[in-house]
């Protein structure tokens, strides 16, 4: 399984891999916000966490459709389906590698982008923490969509649309936890716990559902 993880990381970082695309998209989205909203520093600080979250959400959706499609196109999926290793585990490891290559970098660059948006250190740190807890859920939910659309030649948009309703809760609790850290009366912990619970929930459901869809699509 380590071999699969390392291979997917290598593929993501080499030419043609999607790791950099997500980060550049994230930076582009967040960098244009100050220009669009104008030089109102207070307003920027206020919308900061939400903008970071929306940017990260869209950037994570970007490369998800290739998660299984690339494997199917070169025939590797057929061989993976025939292994003794449970397919659920294979899917989970692929998700983990995908998140390490394209989700984790988003979390790491978010403090820098927070500065663009005039956010306070507490808000930046809280947003980073919620992104760290929430982005794995986006990948795991996306794996289900990617598996369903694996046989479709232009599944990219379909995957995003299938997945979007399911990731809305992640966005809601991620943003509300980030705001709760800076606005006093609201407690930080409850929304953050729910966010973590969503991630754990989909860590179980996501790979299982994706495995079923992949088996069905091999016909």
């Amino acid at each position: 399984m380590m071999a699969l993880y390392l291979r997917d990381l290598k593929l993501a970082t080499r030419a043609g891999g999607g790791a950099l695309t997500g980060i550049l998209f994230f930076m582009a989205v967040v960098a244009v916000v100050p220009f669009g909203l104008g030089p109102d520093l207070k307003l920027l600080a206020q919308v900061g966490p939400a903008m970071l979250w929306i940017g990260a959400l869209l950037a994570s959706l970007l490369g998800l459709d290739r998660l299984f499609q690339a494997e199917r196109e070169d025939g590797a999926l057929d061989v993976m389906l025939m292994q003794e290793t449970p397919l659920v585990l294979t899917v989970f490891v692929k998700c983990l590698a995908h998140w390490t290559a394209s989700g984790l970098p988003l979390v790491l660059v978010s403090p820098l982008l927070g500065l663009f948006l005039n956010m306070e250190p507490t808000a930046i740190f809280a947003t980073m923490l919620t992104l760290l807890a929430g982005t794995p859920a986006i990948t795991l939910i996306g794996a289900m969509g990617a598996a369903v659309a694996v046989a479709l030649p232009r599944g990219g948009l379909l995957v995003s649309i299938l997945v979007l309703p399911l990731v809305i809760p992640v966005l809601i609790f991620g943003v509300s936890a980030a705001y709760a850290a800076v606005e006093d009366p609201a407690p930080f912990l409850p929304p953050f716990m729910i966010l973590t619970a969503i991630t754990l929930f989909f860590a179980v459901i996501g790979p299982a559902a994706a495995a079923v869809a992949l088996r069905a699509s091999s016909e």
Binding site: M2, A3, L4, R7, K10, L11, R14, A15, G16, G17, E73, D74, G75, A76, D78, V79, M80, Q83, E84, T85
Partner: peptide, 23 residues
């Protein structure tokens, strides 16, 4: 029909991966 190998990896990396992955 398809070779189940990744174009961006070297031939040796591809083979080592399949050997490890197949246990």
């Amino acid at each position: 029909h398809r070779n189940a190998m990744k174009r961006d990896l070297t031939v040796a990396e591809n083979l080592v991966f399949w050997a490890r992955f197949s246990g």
